[in-house]
């Protein structure tokens, strides 16, 4: 206790300059697309300098490559949308007090999904569910594979939100739904997004396996290269898958920066 009449605000001055800023465009942000463009350019020049035979030309033409890329992206988008549609609500549900006890078992199942080799899963489904469309088989198998990171990160993200803050929100008369939408989810977003980013990259990479059941995608280019022992084709297919995965990761990173709550 002191009688030295403290000034009206004895508190420390605010830490100025610490204001949350959106990351300005920087070499870190633009470096990767430039690199990817350079790789693609290099690949184009290299392939162009080769004397392509008939078999190689069947794979290495713009129309074919474009159609496989579109197939690849379509499959990936469907899978990711399904992952989000299931894993996020499930993650929210499993962090509610009443459903908590199911969290362990569900995570265990999701773990199995990820631990199982996807190729094995695809082949297994193709054998067991003969009636299914090949694309359905790929979608389900890759979906199972990618659920875990999103589910786990949704749960971790929600769990790390300060309990006392949630209680304060309830204490002010916010409904549970409102607390979820305007407090818990915004604060869980960074952790959730990093899970989603992982799922995206995994998915784009794994969809390459679709070729084994004839569901198309850039995997076709790779398997053409293997089947015909044409290294240029194999190289092109591999580079395209890698570039696509990195590009998607980069995009997701941008979204992540954009959606990160300010001040948190």
């Amino acid at each position: 206790m002191s009688a030295t009449a403290p000034p009206p605000s004895a508190d420390a001055p605010p830490r100025r300059g610490a204001t949350a800023r959106r990351t300005a465009p920087s070499p870190r942000v633009w470096g990767l697309p430039l690199l990817l463009a350079a790789v693609l350019g290099g690949l184009y020049l290299y392939v162009g300098s080769q004397d392509l035979d008939r078999i190689e030309r069947r794979s290495l033409n713009a129309e074919y490559l474009l159609s496989r890329t579109v197939q690849h992206l379509t499959l990936s988008v469907v899978v990711v949308v399904l992952i989000l549609a299931v894993a996020i609500p499930l993650g929210i549900l499993l962090t509610r007090p009443r459903a908590r006890r199911f969290a362990g078992p569900v995570l265990a199942v999701a773990n199995i999904g990820q631990a199982t080799p996807t190729l094995g899963l695809i082949v297994l489904f193709a054998v067991v569910f003969v009636a299914w469309d090949v694309r359905t088989i790929v979608i389900v198998a890759v979906w199972l594979y990618g659920i875990l990171p999103v589910l786990r990160n949704t749960m971790v993200g929600l769990d790390q939100v300060d309990r006392s803050m949630i209680e304060a929100a309830r204490g002010m008369g916010m409904t549970p739904l409102r607390v979820m939408l305007s407090v818990e989810l915004p604060l869980a977003v960074p952790v959730m997004l990093s899970g989603i980013r992982t799922a995206l990259v995994i998915t784009v990479g794994t969809v390459a396996l679709a070729t084994f059941v004839g569901a198309g995608g850039l995997g076709d280019v790779i398997s053409n290269g293997i089947a015909s022992s044409r290294d240029t084709v194999l190289l092109t297919g591999s580079v395209l898958v890698a570039v696509l995965a990195l590009a998607v990761d980069w995009l997701a990173g941008l979204v992540e920066d954009l959606l990160r709550p300010r001040g948190a």
Binding site: M165, A168, R170, G171, G263
Partner: peptide
């Protein structure tokens, strides 16, 4: 919920929303 909107509530941990500005917090 209706009851609580008519009762002010302040706690030791403050429970302020870190992603909201001071003004937005007060306006809750």
């Amino acid at each position: 919920d209706r009851l609580r909107r008519g009762i002010g509530y302040a706690i030791q941990q403050t429970g302020l929303f870190p992603h909201r500005t001071v003004a937005e917090n007060i306006a809750t």
